[in-house]
Design a protein around this nucleic acid. Structure first.
Lengths: 151, 151
DNA sequence: TATATTTGTAACAGCATTGGTCACAGAGAC
DNA sequence: GTCTCTGTGACCAATGCTGTTACAAATATA
């Protein structure tokens, strides 16, 4: 289904990396936990690397590790790193510019969509990878540890 | 692109209907303003009708009109009416239940996604079709009229 | 009643995206 | 030098979205 699962996988991967600490993880190993193909993992790791969230090393004894502290990586950054597309799409073809509604509806909608984007950013910015890891470690305390706020 | 434009079109359509008042509009006419095929419009109108937002009548002199006051229709309802799918998708195949992260990551993610959903609902619930129509009528006052709050 | 009009819906095609897979070049450890 | 691992390109199947044609059912109007 064309709704991407990249965000879910990316959070999963980063949580594994945070869990591993300094030890670099191989795409093969990660793919095992996520239950998919190593190439799929490498593609996502590549996007995360471009966003400066992880660093990889090729060669034997290579692998990937976090480029920053887990507490410094918000889900907002993760989302932006792996989801290029906007949530909402505008009209496929431009509305009739002669119609009083059609001539301006896109501008009005765009403002709405920006507001939604901001709200999403705010919510995603509340949680860090460290927060997720804490929820994973202590499921019962999940509701609490999820509040690892920053800014 | 599998990101649907249905929400944008639905808001456009409902704004036209609000604009028209009691006069029923035909899918042909609406399609002209939206710049698409009448069947596409009818499909969306059908979803809106199922949600109780509009009523249609077949036959000559038929068409569609709002089933409720424009001030009583929030964008939240519009979104729910035409977008069946969740914004985020979970893992395609279930993560490894043996892995400490894999075994619980979906539950942790689900909580995040619910939070985002709620934030989106809140933002969308702020604006009504009447608010949109007002923004269309008075573009300069858009920022103000958009604040047609309810709840 | 007969006709014209309009919705509701099925069916199909074209296109884009996603994820899984293979293949292979390049980097790096030993 | 060899082995291992990442980065990446290419391809495929599955899926979803939209545009289009076609047609039955409903309804106003003559």
């Amino acid at each position: 289904m064309p709704t991407s699962s990249r965000f879910a996988v990316a959070v999963h991967v980063l949580t594994l990396l945070a869990w591993a600490g300094d030890e670099p993880l191989k795409s093969d190993y990660i793919a095992g936990s996520v239950n998919t193909n190593p190439v799929v993992i490498r593609r996502i790791l590549c996007a995360l690397a471009r966003a400066g969230l992880v660093t990889s090393q090729t060669g034997a004894a290579g692998g990937t590790r976090l480029a920053r502290t887990a507490s410094d990586i918000t889900l907002r950054e993760v989302y932006r790193a792996v989801e290029p597309r906007e949530i909402f799409a505008m009209h496929r073809s431009p509305p009739d510019p002669e119609c009083p509604v059609g001539m301006i509806i896109e501008k009005v909608l765009h403002r709405q969509l920006t507001e939604i984007d901001n709200a999403m950013d705010e919510v995603l910015g509340r949680t860090t990878i460290e927060g997720v890891m804490r929820s994973v470690k202590q499921p019962s305390r999940a509701a609490k540890s999820r509040r690892t706020t920053r800014a």
